[in-house]
């Protein structure tokens, strides 16, 4: 892996391994969404990965929304 970026290596890789487990990709209403796993078993939307601009106007995909799955 070669990173081509003006950022320092230490700026990119600062966290410990267990940080990785908190985030995962899942589908919400057919759209791929990056979520944070919350301690109570629900998920919080971090990022929506869709190319349809209208998806970003809909409320279930707004960052911070809680998703039950």
């Amino acid at each position: 892996m070669i990173l081509y970026t003006p950022l320092d290596h230490n700026d990119i890789f600062t966290t410990t391994q267990d940080q990785y487990k908190k985030q995962k990709m899942m589908e919400v209403e057919g759209r791929p969404v990056l979520v944070n796993c919350l301690p109570d078993g629900t998920y919080q939307v971090v990022q929506l990965l869709s190319t349809n601009p209208h998806d970003y106007l809909e409320s279930p995909f707004q960052p911070g929304e809680i998703v039950n799955n």
Partner: peptide
């Protein structure tokens, strides 16, 4: 018209830490 947003770091074979 669809929109492709290239934001933050471009992740490759190695998953980057979640703060990125």
């Amino acid at each position: 018209i669809h929109v492709l947003s290239i934001i933050g770091q471009i992740e490759g074979h190695v998953q980057l830490p979640p703060q990125n």
